[in-house]
């Protein structure tokens, strides 16, 4: 049942730990932000650890074309985020930075898939993979409705389903990769915005 290899187990432990951290009600506001960032960083770290097997290192993944694209998107995202927070103060531009970060995350996961020389598909081919993508879609849509409070739990459910699909059922599809990274990335940019704006104000 547990994923083979030390890294898969690290991934799952980090995922569980980050969910715990995320749920602790910290009381001062800045601590809450830092706690949230730590939790989401652990979530993203778990996604990275998911694919770091003995055979392949992070460097190998970054050497592939997809890995280079991912790094480029991440750098562009950082530049755009800095520009929006320091120069233009434009929330729309910060949203664009978040989308670039999301693209970087999906490309990074795909680079790991490619490294293990598995065929990457667009659509999932396992049942859990379909469920992860199917939960992610309403979670993203509901965000803009009065039921936005259900978006987070649904997104985490999509992340969990994608994690199980990739680790246990050998799912290698773009949609599942998106389900794996979307919630973590969105939460990360959300908390980073709070931290940076607090720093700028103080």
């Amino acid at each position: 049942m547990l994923p083979a290899g030390r890294s898969g187990r690290w991934a799952v432990s980090l995922f569980l730990l980050s969910l715990f951290l995320f749920m602790v009600p910290w009381f001062p506001e800045s601590l809450a932000t830092i706690g949230g960032i730590l939790a989401v960083a652990a979530l993203i770290g778990s996604v990275v650890c998911t694919f770091a097997s003995r055979k392949h290192s992070v460097r190998d993944a970054l050497r592939t074309g997809l890995g280079r694209l991912s790094v480029a998107a991440l750098a562009a995202s950082a530049v755009v985020a800095a520009a929006s927070l320091v120069v233009t103060f434009d929330p729309g531009l910060y949203g664009a930075a978040g989308i670039l970060g999301l693209i970087a995350g999906v490309l990074g996961v795909l680079a790991w898939f490619r490294l293990s020389s598995d065929r990457i598909r667009l659509l999932p081919h396992t049942a859990v993979g379909w469920w992860s993508a199917g939960i992610l879609a309403p979670s993203a849509i509901v965000q803009f409705s009065p039921w936005a409070s259900l978006s987070g739990p649904a997104g985490i459910a999509a992340t969990g389903a994608a994690l199980v699909a990739i680790l246990c059922y050998h799912e290698r599809s773009v949609l599942s990769a998106a389900a794996l990274v979307t919630t973590a990335t969105m939460l990360f940019y959300f908390y980073a915005l709070f931290l940076v704006s607090n720093l700028i104000r103080s």
Binding site: M23, G152, I156
Partner: peptide, 26 residues
Amino acid sequence: LGDGTGLELGGAFLTWAGVSAVLGLV
């Protein structure tokens, strides 16, 4: 949810139980 610093108790349980129920159903 989102009002204040953390999620409330029910929200915390909701997130976990959501993952669990989805995987059980699958």
